[in-house]
Design a binder for these strands. Structure first.
Lengths: 113, 113
DNA sequence: CTGCCTCCCCTCGTACTGCGAGGGGGCTTG
DNA sequence: CAAGCCCCCTCGCAGTACGAGGGGAGGCAG
């Protein structure tokens, strides 16, 4: 019968931006690599679809948290490299704190007797 | 000048249901009391607006995870008491595991070097 | 050279959800 | 009788994650 099918979970609202910004904290990356990075560093748990990825990147560009420039990938393909701006770095820090605060509060509720 | 204004954070998608279900795990409560419970047991961090609350309760009723019956509140007012169904209890457990899994994965990404 | 796979980009439309604004009614206290 | 708390609900907006769909170009097997 069926193999055990992995259904990647839907990401909670707002977290996609956070994950992408974090992916860029260590240096520039292109979109495809961002998705791979998130997948890998989450232990193969999180799966970021391409549509979610690129719509989020548009948002981040629009808000001035990343900049993009075209270049060639390590596999010699046309790729857009995204870089964190200093505003983006601040935003990442602030949103991470916010995330921790909210998640902590939620967990307190869920663990309560 | 201005007091430090508390701006309650927007809750990540899907978590409202979870919090409500958890609020009912210890017994029936009416809507107003659910909001108070969440506020209190989150350490005054989470603030659930009434509109979010009641739209979520509609969802939960529709999905058969809670049932509702009218009664009188402890303050002698007309109140609708919500009770967890056994399906709701299972759903709560499953969603809590899912939440832990996803949040754990996100945190792994955010903490990564 | 042809077909196919991998890499890499993007948009459109859909479904869902959290929330502000708005609306109602009934105790209780001053 | 006014004010304030308790308690219920709907409507409409804005945001967002995602599936489906649509490219194109390099590399490799046949």
């Amino acid at each position: 019968m069926g193999q055990k099918e992995r259904i990647p979970p839907e990401l909670p609202g707002g977290t996609v931006d956070l994950l992408i910004l974090k992916s860029l904290a260590g240096g520039r990356r292109h979109g495809y690599a961002i998705a791979q990075y998130i997948r890998a560093s989450s232990g193969e748990v999180l799966e970021l679809g391409e549509s979610s990825l690129y719509t989020a990147l548009q948002r981040l560009l629009l808000n001035g948290w990343v900049t993009g420039e075209w270049g060639a990938s390590e596999h010699n393909r046309r790729a857009r490299y995204y870089t964190l701006t200093s505003a983006g770095r601040k935003h990442l820090a602030a949103e991470t704190r916010e995330f921790d605060l909210v998640v902590g509060a939620i967990q307190r509720v869920l663990r309560a007797v």
